[in-house]
Design a protein around this nucleic acid. Structure first.
Lengths: 129, 129
DNA sequence: TCCGTTCAAAACCAAAAGGTTGCGCACGCG
DNA sequence: CGCGTGCGCAACCTTTTGGTTTTGAACGGA
């Protein structure tokens, strides 16, 4: 076992999962609400949440019928520690914060929507703008 | 495409590849020298190096017959930026540096050696120098 | 000039990952 | 009480990944 860092990096390697983390950064969410903007099935989202939870990146708590997902930032600190071992991780200007956040979410949505369209495309115009 | 961050995280998700990065942190190395301590074939290592290079985490330069591998820390800065978007990445005490580095390398070696031993099971005639 | 070293690419294979559908199990609202 | 809602689990399919062995190309030294 190489510890949990394996699972953490593997979890972060998927754009859908990173998009989920970005959503949870804004606020805690129910599973259904997490799944709503994503172009995959609810069960698929549930699997992603399982991966994220196994990596310690989120936690899930049942309240009534609804399961609330919460970002668990401590796991990300492990990545931070790992990064530090490789030297220059000087903080970037905080402007990057919002820019990145929006970009990440929108990119994920666009990419997945594209993939979705591609499947249904058949012979549609192969040249997107 | 969600940019190169996908490839970076995917590349970092493998312990063998992280061990390679840790080696290259100490110094630039030839492919053969990278492969030497690892319990997989040279071709396997070459593939891992290909993944790391595709992610921008290392660069390879041919000098004579030998290809020298060099850590490319700029790619890791992308991870750092991503991490920053998720808040608390306050620097950890630098003591963690050496501890982690040794642990990472040794853990990777042990885990892989274990797997190797598991495959060969009862055959103990293996006497590495 | 020929040979050994150094490495990547190709052709495979087993296993894991990402996705789907369908089922079942709790819950709380009528 | 019963039914719809919210969610996880299991079975299945396809693609990717990590590994192997084999082949062969580029380069230097003798």
């Amino acid at each position: 076992m190489s510890g949990r860092i394996d699972q953490i990096f593997a979890a972060l390697a998927d754009p859908t999962r990173r998009a989920i983390l970005a959503m949870l950064l804004e606020d805690d969410m129910a599973v259904t609400d997490v799944a709503e903007p994503l172009p995959i099935s609810l069960a698929g989202v549930s699997k992603h949440l399982g991966v994220l939870a196994a990596a310690g990146l989120i936690s899930r708590e049942r309240r009534g019928r609804v399961i609330w997902c919460k970002l668990e930032p401590d796991a990300l600190r492990e990545v931070s520690v790992w990064l530090q071992a490789f030297g220059q991780v000087e903080p970037v200007e905080l402007d990057a914060f919002e820019r990145f956040l929006a970009a990440e979410l929108e990119a994920a949505r666009e990419a997945l929507a594209e993939a979705e369209a591609e499947v249904q495309a058949g012979d549609a115009t192969d040249a997107p703008p």
